[in-house]
Design a protein around this nucleic acid. Sequence first.
DNA 1: TGCGTTACTGACAGTAGTGTCAGTAATTAG
DNA 2: CTAATTACTGACACTACTGTCAGTAACGCA
Lengths: 228, 228
Amino acid sequence: MTAEEIAEHAPAYRRRKDQRPDEILAAGLEEFNEHGFAGASMARIAKRADVSRGTLYLYFENKEALFLAVAENAMSAFTRDAAAKMDMGDHSTEETLRALFGQMYAMMTSTKNSALLRILVSEGPNMPDLVAQYHARILSTGKQLLARIIARGVERSEVREDAAGTVPQLLIAPVMFYVIHTMVFGDLEPLDENQFAQSHLDMIMRGIGQPPCQGGPGSQGPGQPADT
Amino acid sequence: MTAEEIAEHAPAYRRRKDQRPDEILAAGLEEFNEHGFAGASMARIAKRADVSRGTLYLYFENKEALFLAVAENAMSAFTRDAAAKMDMGDHSTEETLRALFGQMYAMMTSTKNSALLRILVSEGPNMPDLVAQYHARILSTGKQLLARIIARGVERSEVREDAAGTVPQLLIAPVMFYVIHTMVFGDLEPLDENQFAQSHLDMIMRGIGQPPCQGGPGSQGPGQPADT
DNA sequence: TGCGTTACTGACAGTAGTGTCAGTAATTAG
DNA sequence: CTAATTACTGACACTACTGTCAGTAACGCA
């Protein structure tokens, strides 16, 4: 069978109207993540999505519309995933935070979400409404969640009363640090995710928890960190 | 005196061979900060530096060379400033850290240094040698400094012994968070620098310091944070 | 199998921006 | 004041990319 005969039976392309948008969005996220908005090339996005340049314009009006759709898609994926997992049952504050931070590290480690963060840092100055969206839908939601956990911890006397004055962002700062560090310096100096997360939780719990000797009934401070 | 007569006596431009490079670098930093490498326009940089487009190419070979010079310049300014201030005299660990963090917040708040950070996040994937430079000259220096402070604190029993196992990056994570948050969300939700820094220090000292009741002689934990 | 619909392609025009260079004018020296 | 030097300018050629659209071929349906 010659190459031409094969070519005759294998169509040059498939019509896949409903898969295209998602594939293009995924390709766009990669491209925008690596090159930023201005540096991204529609030709490369098309190649990544395995379509021709023209096809992009069938599904998105222009480069900016595609970019905004990429960001919107990433944000809604984030909130969907997050909402699915945050049940915050009747566990101790430490367990709740451990679970929460575990989720955060896991989520932010996914390339999709770290790409979203990079895009925000890079394009923020030129896309104020995108920044506002992210702030409203992700940051302030997270901040409220943290505030609720702390308040509940105070009620249960698992958390020092004056911890309510702590800036809640301080609790998740290490997560952002970890993501950015990994994104930028991951090749040069990879951080051990588990060790970092464990240190993070220990520090937080010492920072907001009851002092180990005078306070709560059971035991509050995390004691010695897990060995190694 | 007509406009033409004025024009005749006021030259259209001045020859300022030795000021140009710095002015162009400053203009470039602004531009790259706002638009990233690809999005930056040599025309706008020229306008910002108050020269013609052609002049840029008298002092820098091309856009990439200018970009690298901008980054190099920002990095060496950073290390110069930092080196000048870090004396770490014979103060307590807490005082040393307070001074250190104070410097860090002050330095990173300057647009020049936050711009450097943004550039690194944005262009990192395409400029691995720049990333390596920053890592070697700034990050690992800072990390070593922190490690030394902690080690000294342990010697003086101002710091828990097992704190040596703490990932040192954890201590400065809030600084990076603060910078990025301010850069991206500063308009929407400004953070109070002093309050944030104070909370940061308190959390760190509780995290690595001796427990307040059983441990050190004088007093170690920062006690209650300053009111409000 | 043949026909109509439409998802898809790739060549094209238009544009924005880089890097060049011959010329101009500010400055210095004589 | 004149001449020589050179910092500086702005028009030009070139490139790379965006967005368009007429045509093509894959697929559903008879």
